[in-house]
Design a protein around this nucleic acid. Structure first.
Lengths: 250, 250
DNA sequence: CCAAAAGTGTTGTTAGTACACCCATGG
DNA sequence: CCATGGGTGTACTAACAACACTTTTGG
């Protein structure tokens, strides 16, 4: 193995796929790049890992820099290492995703970004680098996780209605679910706390408000759940994916 | 971001966790390192990614160099990036696991290794670098995958008995399963082909031989399966894990 | 009184679990 | 004839799927 130094000239970056939920659609946070390469293009928020920095530390740092958020659920999804994926040199990137509540957050563009913005997932167009591929992989991953862990609750306000919870699941999974079966299922999980409060000021029968039980939540994250409800009749996608978000995965 | 070059001095390696199955135990392939650092220690077979090499190509290359195998099921599990994990400099490593049939394979140590050997999983001792952690994460991953995909068939000979298949599952999951329920389940998967052949020369009733249906296999890999058989009574581990293989995961 | 969303129960089906005895062969 | 592992069926339970009408509120 001659010329060992040639093996030590790689950059390492982390990219964050930050999902947020708003009304009934799943969004992803993108930045508009303020510098080359891909200046002016939308991209996932990410940055190079510093020398001597642990990659898990780096991703938390980047997330904090871009969103101000700490202590969020962060999940390493995969590493992307095509030799030409970055035009300025060899940079492999480690992708993470996280879920945040879109309302607890305010955008803080960095020097690399001149704009940060939520984008509905099905409207995402061509992104910088290989970020469309990364996004697709993370989205697949999110959907898989949603079936095995009670995540998704991260995306709701403190107090929520069962209908909001259901449309969150429908939004992420992109399919309709049966109302009665959905309710039966989530109530049986014993994860919800009935607050004995109701919506106010709505032009229909007001819905009961729930929050969820932190302790039980963490227990279920550990144990895993199985969330496999189907609505066979309407199992077609609610919305079509855009040209660039085609869930190709790998 | 002053001194950009300091960001481009990282090494990237791939490490392979190669599982093999033999009789009724799960094994992992380790090499004894022939060079420093950790000379003489057992380690996962891995190597640096070449400049201009795709990481997925690199892992296949390393696997081929070490085992002669091609076209095996290779699964990226995660990336490990503690800054001090390699004593000679910053090297992050991308871990993959694969499953092979222990009999189709012959060991070919490289210049870095003076010995390659199968180790029963529960006897693995302290390994070089952070390889114990990587092994634990891969083992967890294998067990998770085993419940969701019909992998594990990779580990059996072409023709096998249902008892062999069951002890494979028991060996990987490290728990006893109920014979009748196990058979009911796998036969319902319609994955097995009854060869109408029988074992010969055994000192007991000869078992029927099966192979499995390639097309159906690939279909099930796509669709995913749910393999959740329990034997509640005997749900204690068959074997205790060794000191260093403690499934800490992360 | 109308529009809009909330809320609620039953029945059939499928998948999982527990469990114990007889069978075919080689030595 | 005995030791060894191969092979089989049934009853109970839990989870899921299908499906339609009544309730409460604001305007």
């Amino acid at each position: 193995m001659e010329d060992i130094d040639r093996y030590f000239c790689n950059g390492i970056s982390v990219d964050n796929v930050i999902f947020g939920f708003d009304e009934d659609r799943l969004n992803v946070l993108l930045i508009k790049r303020g510098i080359d390469p891909f200046k002016g293009k939308w991209a996932l928020p990410g940055a190079l890992v510093k020398p001597e920095e642990h990659i898990d530390t780096a991703v938390a740092r980047v997330l904090k820099q871009l969103t101000g958020l700490e202590d969020v659920y962060l999940n390493q999804v995969g590493t992307f290492g095509a030799p030409d994926r970055h035009p300025d040199g060899r940079v492999i990137t480690i992708a993470y995703y996280s879920l945040i509540n879109i309302r607890n957050y305010s955008v803080t563009p960095t020097s690399f970004a001149n704009q940060s913005q939520w984008h509905p997932i099905e409207k995402v167009q061509e992104l910088a680098f290989d970020h469309n591929m990364i996004l697709d992989v993370c989205l697949n991953n999110l959907r898989k996780e949603l079936r095995n862990k009670p995540i998704g609750f991260n995306l709701l306000p403190q107090k929520f209605t069962l209908t909001q919870l259901q449309s969150l699941y429908e939004g992420i999974l992109n399919r309709k679910l049966d109302k009665r079966n959905f309710r039966k299922k989530v109530i049986n999980m014993k994860l919800l706390v009935d607050l004995d409060q109701y919506q106010e000021g709505v032009a229909h029968r007001p819905a009961k408000l729930y929050s969820f039980d932190e302790a039980r939540y963490h227990q279920l994250v550990e144990e895993g759940i199985s969330f496999e409800l189907k609505e066979s009749k309407n199992s077609k996608p609610i919305r079509q994916a855009s040209t660039f978000s085609q869930l190709s995965s790998i």
